[in-house]
Nucleic acid binder design. Structure first.
Lengths: 130, 130
DNA sequence: ACTGCATAGTACAGCCATGAACGATTCGGC
DNA sequence: GCCGAATCGTTCATGGCTGTACTATGCAGT
């Protein structure tokens, strides 16, 4: 499936761009969800929004915490839960990642006309709901 | 990037289909290259054709060999090289994987018209060469 | 021949993702 | 109030992928 190969190429480009600020797609995804939520999120909530399993989030947060981009904070209303909270460094790193991401995105679509882009988006949505 | 999400969905479907004959995309890819080459390939050649690094092939072949789908055979002309050779079981498993793969591929594109499919292919190729 | 360099495969460490199993907590129904 | 079911996060095993080192071998050029 050629489509998959093309997508892998795209991913690699974005991954490379994010790599320059020390992020991966996975880490950037987590930071994005935290930023857009505007408040610390439960690890389960994070797993839902990242469309992955909870054990994956555990590891991702482990690494992000180790890099001081997020913190684990207790949830006062449910002692089972742990919330991931963005640190200042995390928020800053996200913003730099955002720049790199958008730049890579634009650069990747250089060769496509505006019509092509909207057509591509339409087909992608069609595929997802099939 | 919505396109990447759609591609992941596709991959998951194919992966599930291949799973029913005990294969993954990665393993199926290796078997495909061996079948299309028609002869045992060195691990480096395999890495080139699979567009991945050699250490990845080492592990993949480890697993395939463990499942008796391929064998490691010495290369008489270069004592550094090791060739991966399809077993009878490997060839049979590939053929069953081929069926599952094509079926999943067709099923995934159910919702697209013939025009949409060729358009999708065109855009994918455009993206790859950008 | 010998030395130096490229190549082949592997070992190892790390990242990302999954699924199964587990202890801790919460909650619903009785 | 108590018990069973659901939920929370973690751990472990497995698989796929990368990049870096390392050994063994081949291939110059001198």
């Amino acid at each position: 499936m050629r489509v998959i190969g093309a997508a892998h190429g795209l991913e690699a480009r974005i991954e490379r761009a994010l790599g320059e600020v020390g992020l991966s797609m996975a880490k950037f995804g987590v930071l994005s969800r935290l930023v857009e939520a505007g408040e610390p999120l439960t690890l389960s909530a994070l797993a839902d929004r990242c469309s992955c399993v909870r054990s994956n989030i555990t590891q991702l947060i482990d690494r992000l915490q180790h890099e001081k981009l997020v913190e684990r904070v207790a949830d006062p209303t449910d002692r089972r839960s742990i919330r991931a909270s963005l640190t200042r460094l995390g928020r800053e790193t996200f913003e730099r990642g955002e720049q790199a991401f958008q730049q890579a995105e634009l650069h990747a679509l250089d060769g496509l006309s505006a019509d092509d882009r909207s057509e591509l988006l339409r087909l992608a949505q069609l595929l997802e709901n099939a």
